[in-house]
């Protein structure tokens, strides 16, 4: 049995700022699943934007702060594959905190994998009668291996799908390119603006041509990018984080 009583909620900085509802949905969902969750108020960004821009060495302070903030929790859960991957694989070694860092990297989970692999929830009761298109964020998909990759010869699986498909009425839409990148890519979104937007448009087109109503995913950064393009072009699509769908469906 896992201890569900001491779970730290890590809300990525841009989710905190722009998408408080995703943070709320994550918290409520975990609570509905019987977890005692607390959100340490001192938390800040994990350092990913700087590290991916080539300044990993300048994020030791950020990383140290992260480790200290979350060191007393049994688990750390975040509604973001990307930030979790960063903490696990790309945060620089903090001298003097090596064992804390090792522990943190092995107790941090992205939300859906926490539900499927740690809570081992195999039935979620709820209803969500919509045609849902799933955007697999690359860091969740190929970084954390939350779903089988189309490039690899492996048994197909998808942790988000495993959860969503249990909801009554939810229609999971198959896409032509199920795990192609949306083009967000952190600073890439601005340094390679033309490419980034084209990639986003191409992803939206795939969802649209398959009659998707709602695009969901595990990373709001991809969704923010896709939604930004869709809204600018008045594309009739809705966007929700998977935590919002699950939380809404259960209640």
């Amino acid at each position: 049995m896992i201890n569900k009583k001491n779970i730290g909620l890590f809300i990525p900085c841009y989710v905190d700022q722009f998408y408080p509802n995703v943070g709320i949905a994550t918290l409520e969902l975990l609570e509905k699943l019987g977890c005692q969750v607390s959100y340490p108020l001192g938390q800040t960004c994990c350092g990913q934007p700087m590290a991916n821009a080539g300044y990993e060495r300048d994020t030791i302070g950020t990383t140290k702060h992260f480790l200290n903030t979350f060191k007393d929790f049994d688990y750390i859960v975040a509604p973001s594959g990307s930030c979790v991957l960063h903490v696990k694989e790309h945060s620089p070694t903090v001298p003097g905190l090596e064992s804390e860092q090792y522990a943190t990297q092995h107790k941090i989970y992205e939300l859906t994998e926490f539900i499927t692999d740690i809570l081992e929830i195999d039935s979620i009761q709820g209803s969500y009668p919509h045609k849902v298109g799933y955007h697999a964020s690359c860091h969740g998909q190929r970084g954390l291996r939350l779903a089988s990759a189309s490039e690899l010869h492996e048994t197909p699986f998808n942790k988000a799908r495993q959860l969503l498909q249990q909801l009554d009425g939810l229609e999971w839409i198959e896409l032509a390119r199920k795990d192609e990148c949306c083009g967000f890519g952190g600073t890439f979104a601005v340094t390679e603006e033309a490419l980034s937007v084209q990639m986003g448009k191409d992803r939206l087109e795939d969802h649209l041509s398959h009659d998707v109503e709602i695009i969901t995913g595990g990373d709001m950064s991809c969704i923010m990018h896709l939604e930004g393009i869709a809204r600018r072009n008045k594309t009739p699509l809705q966007f929700k984080h998977i935590a919002e769908i699950l939380n809404e469906a259960i209640s």
Binding site: G54, C138, R142, G143, A149, C181, G183, G185, F188, E192
Partner: peptide
Amino acid sequence: PFASTLCGSCSDV
């Protein structure tokens, strides 16, 4: 090296 989203598809193929 910045002409990438670090999506990882290259490593998987």
